[in-house]
Amino acid sequence: MNGTYPQLEIEIRSERCNHCINAPCVRCCPTGASHFAEGGIVLVEHNKCIGCGACMASCPYDARYPHPDGYVDKCTFCIHRIKIGLAPACAAVCPTKCIYFGDLDDPNSDVSVVLKKRKSKTLIPEAGTKPQLYFLI
């Protein structure tokens, strides 16, 4: 929410981990639990994570949280669904179909096509993390 009454603007974003290309959370993890999976998705290997919280402190988007079991967790882009050819749950259930998912390296994927057609932005690109989540504007 921005501005002074009555000139207000509101932006509603569905936020999650940005699966950054230059991910500080992967860099600062002392055990290698935070890692890039094949295809660029950033994941946490639960049995390697010691729960030190360094990755949480390093994420400018506050995308991580401690799981009640102790390890630190985050959005996995539903990698378990992607592997069997399904869209991530958020994209699948969105009633207005406003979430697109796909391979940015593939010029014909849903995301690549919509990003070519529409204007978009990433969140705080100045943080240098190279986020891979684009918000259509």
């Binding site: 010691i50 729960g51 919280g53």
Partner: peptide, 26 residues
Amino acid sequence: IDLRHKLFFWQLYTNIRLQSPMSWGA
């Protein structure tokens, strides 16, 4: 005490991660 996943503490010492200050410290 600060670690939340304490049983996996030893992972600190089976990995050397030069980019991670936490690893340097350990």
